Simulated assay, not measured.
Amino acid sequence: MSKLHFTTKHANAATVQRNWYVVDGTNQTVGRMCARIAAILRGKNKAYYTPHVDCGDYVIVTNADKVKFTGNKMEEKVYDHFTGYPGGRKEELAKDLLKRRPEVIIERGVKGMLPKNRLGRKMYKKLFVYAGDQHPHTAQQPKELKF
């Protein structure tokens, strides 16, 4: 009898195929949408997913100003950042940040779900978020992604 030899295929920069996807944020729950986007940016939707290689796709999010939160998060969720100065902690409620800069909500949500290293920073650069329904990436012919 002959032995069967199976080898695991690992992705590398030469073998990765990158696609462009566009996601409509209208009436999408923020956390669920961000989790799915983070999985696509990592490449977990592909059969040849390799953890140490950036094999993810590009994602464009439109209508970021029309996302929704569940429960009381719109009134109670606090986004904060630190300026680096003493007493420089700035806080803002989700409803105020959604009015002022709606892109930040999705960007911060997805960034928190990516790896905290140089590979995660490289994946994060493939995310493009826009408040309206227009985006400048029509030349890439993005496919509509439904959740």
Rank of each mutant, 00 (worst) to 15 (best):
Ala38Met: 05
Asn72Gly: 12
Phe69Pro: 05
Gly132Lys: 15
Leu93Ile: 05
Lys126Phe: 00
Ala94Thr: 12
Gly56Pro: 01
Thr7Ser: 13
Ala131Met: 07
Leu114Pro: 11
Ala131Asn: 10
Asp96Ile: 05
Glu76Leu: 10
Asp133His: 12
Val16Asn: 10
His52Cys: 07
Asn117Val: 05
Ala131Tyr: 03
Asp57Thr: 13
Arg42Tyr: 01
Arg100Ser: 15
Thr70Pro: 03
Phe82Cys: 12
Gly87Ser: 11
His10Trp: 00
Tyr124Arg: 08
Gly31Glu: 12
Phe6Asn: 15
Asp96Pro: 15
Phe69Thr: 11
Arg108Met: 07
Leu41His: 07
Lys126Arg: 07
Ala47Ile: 12
Lys116Thr: 06
Thr62Ile: 15
Met123Asp: 05
Lys126Cys: 01
Arg42Cys: 01
Lys125Ser: 09
Thr138Glu: 11
Asn117Met: 04
Pro86Trp: 04
Lys143Val: 01
Arg32Gln: 04
Gly88Phe: 01
Arg118Met: 09
Pro115Glu: 06
Ala35Thr: 13
Asn19Trp: 00
Gln141Gly: 14
Asp80Ser: 15
Ser2Phe: 06
Leu93Cys: 10
Ala139Arg: 14
His137Gln: 09
Lys46Thr: 02
Leu114Gly: 14
Gln134Met: 14
Asp65Pro: 09
Phe128Asn: 04
Lys146Ile: 03
Lys77Glu: 04
Lys68Cys: 08
Val110Tyr: 00
Val61Ser: 03
Lys3Met: 03
Arg101Asp: 12
Leu127Tyr: 04
Thr8Asp: 07
Lys3Glu: 06
Thr138Ile: 07
Val16Gly: 11
Met1Trp: 06
Trp20Val: 00
Gly71Cys: 12
Lys73Pro: 04
Val104Gln: 13
Gly109Trp: 00
His137Arg: 15
Val78Met: 06
Ile40Ala: 14
Thr138Arg: 15
Gly56Val: 03
Asn12Glu: 10
Met113Cys: 04
Lys99Ala: 12
Met33Thr: 09
Gly120Ala: 08
Gly132Phe: 15
Lys68Glu: 10
Lys95Ile: 04
Met74Ile: 10
Gln17His: 15
Lys3Ala: 13
Asp24Glu: 10
Asp24His: 10
Phe147Pro: 08
Glu107Gly: 06
Pro86Arg: 15
Gln17Phe: 08
Gly132Thr: 15
Val59Lys: 11
Thr8Phe: 10
Lys143Ser: 03
Leu4Arg: 14
His52Trp: 03
Gly71Ser: 14
Asn72Ile: 02
Glu107Ala: 14
Gly43Cys: 07
Leu93Arg: 11
Thr29Lys: 07
Lys46Pro: 00
Pro102Trp: 03
Arg89Ser: 13
Asp57Gln: 14
Tyr58His: 15
Val61Gly: 05
Glu107Met: 12
Val22Ile: 08
Thr70His: 09
Thr29Asp: 06
Asp80Tyr: 08
Asn27Gly: 13
